[in-house]
């Protein structure tokens, strides 16, 4: 168990700056996801924490001890790799036992720990097998068991579910959450899948272009994205951004009035598609619906609001025809206002 302090880490590959000064503090026992599109630097950051990559500058402290310059084995961590990296020439038992053997643990302790980890991940039945006889999901379990068997201070996971098929991914996600909660290990989890990050994490750090754009609980990040990028990246459909004129510190949407943190000019409304309610036209924002898709659980509308593309979700009980104009009432508590120039959101009204 250990806390992690990442202090202004920078990393350049030649002229390319992969990380442009990243700082993040992770509490003991916390589960933090690094979420971002591919190429944003999240995996590089994880590999720097693991010691598999060196940083150009900055400091990383694990359990209040700087680990810069230490080889991976001396950092007190374990890692689950994207391609599992299960050793093909060892049985599942020896794979799970590998870290303990390297610590020169005695046979009794190895056996106890391997059985405990194997039990957590339900792989007791395959302990004698070689990895080539296992399915992808089973190998994934072996990789997680191998990491948990050493009872690491910090567990690093690099897109561990991305190679599994959709159904298995959902199942493993739920199971991972149970297992990791039980283990209580400080975990850093890299993913580009927002549903994984939302479902698993205590906090999410959204990484974009070598920087952390926002750190917060899943609900905070979802409801009040710090930047336009975060709002657009998280949520399905993504947040709608509608530029609106401001007069005397107010924005008018039909007959609805909202006080906004700007006096004049324009402001961008960040609108989550499912926060609206159907209303008579003219009462809130009017949406010209191009396509209405009944999804069973909800109704997905694609069209435009104030001439700007938008996607909105209504209850499945509503019926809307293609080409129809629907009125949408806004919930003032669930709106995000962003600066049109910088794309940064204004702090949520208290």
């Amino acid at each position: 168990m250990a806390n992690i302090v990442i202090d202004n880490i920078k990393k350049s590959f030649g002229a390319f700056q992969a990380l442009k000064g990243v700082s993040l503090t992770i509490k003991d026992g916390e589960f933090v996801s690094l979420l971002g599109p591919s190429g944003c630097g999240k995996t590089t950051l994880l590999r720097i924490i693991a010691g598999l990559e060196t940083s150009t500058s900055g400091d990383i402290r694990i359990g209040d001890k700087s680990v810069i310059g230490l080889p991976p084995k001396d950092r007190g961590l374990a890692m689950v790799f994207q391609n599992y990296a299960v050793f093909p020439h060892m049985t599942v038992y020896e794979n799970v036992a590998f870290g303990l053997r390297m610590q020169k643990a005695d046979d009794a302790r190895v056996k106890k720990q391997v059985e405990k980890a194997a039990g957590l991940l339900h792989i007791e039945a395959y302990l004698d097998r070689y990895p080539n006889k296992l399915s992808g999901g089973q190998r994934q379990r072996v990789a997680v068991a191998r990491a948990l068997a050493v009872e690491p201070g910090v567990l690093l996971m690099d897109e561990p579910l991305s190679n599994l098929d959709a159904l298995l991914r959902l199942e493993m996600r739920t199971e991972l959450k149970t297992v990791l909660q039980e283990a209580g290990t400080t975990t850093i989890y890299v993913t580009h899948d927002q549903t994984e990050a939302m479902g698993l994490s205590d906090r999410i750090a959204v990484v974009h272009d070598g920087r952390i754009e926002q750190v917060g609980t899943p609900v905070e990040v979802y409801n009040h994205p710090a930047t336009r990028f975060v709002g657009g990246f998280i949520g399905n459909p993504p947040m709608n951004f509608i530029t609106m004129p401001v007069t005397n510190g107010q924005v008018a949407a039909g007959s609805q009035r909202f006080a906004v943190p700007a006096q004049g000019g324009e402001i961008v409304l960040g609108l989550r598609g499912e926060t609206v309610e159907r209303a008579p036209t003219g009462q809130g924002l009017d949406m010209e619906v191009r396509v209405a898709e009944p999804m069973g659980s909800h109704l997905l509308l694609t069209g435009s609001i104030l001439g700007q593309p938008a996607r909105v979700i209504l209850p499945a009980t509503e019926t809307v025809k293609n080409g129809e104009t629907v009125g949408l009432a806004l919930d003032p508590k669930r709106l995000t206002w962003l600066s049109p120039e910088s794309g940064v959101s204004y702090p949520a009204a208290a």
């Binding site: 084995k73 790799f81 050793f87």
Partner: peptide, 27 residues
């Protein structure tokens, strides 16, 4: 021999030389 296997060995307590002889060489 996938690089990740070697990296896994480093993370789980091997020096570079140990990782070579325990993981890379047998494979």
């Amino acid at each position: 021999v996938p690089r990740e296997l070697e990296e896994a060995a480093w993370v789980f307590g091997c020096t570079r030389i140990q990782a070579f002889f325990k993981i890379v060489a047998p494979l």
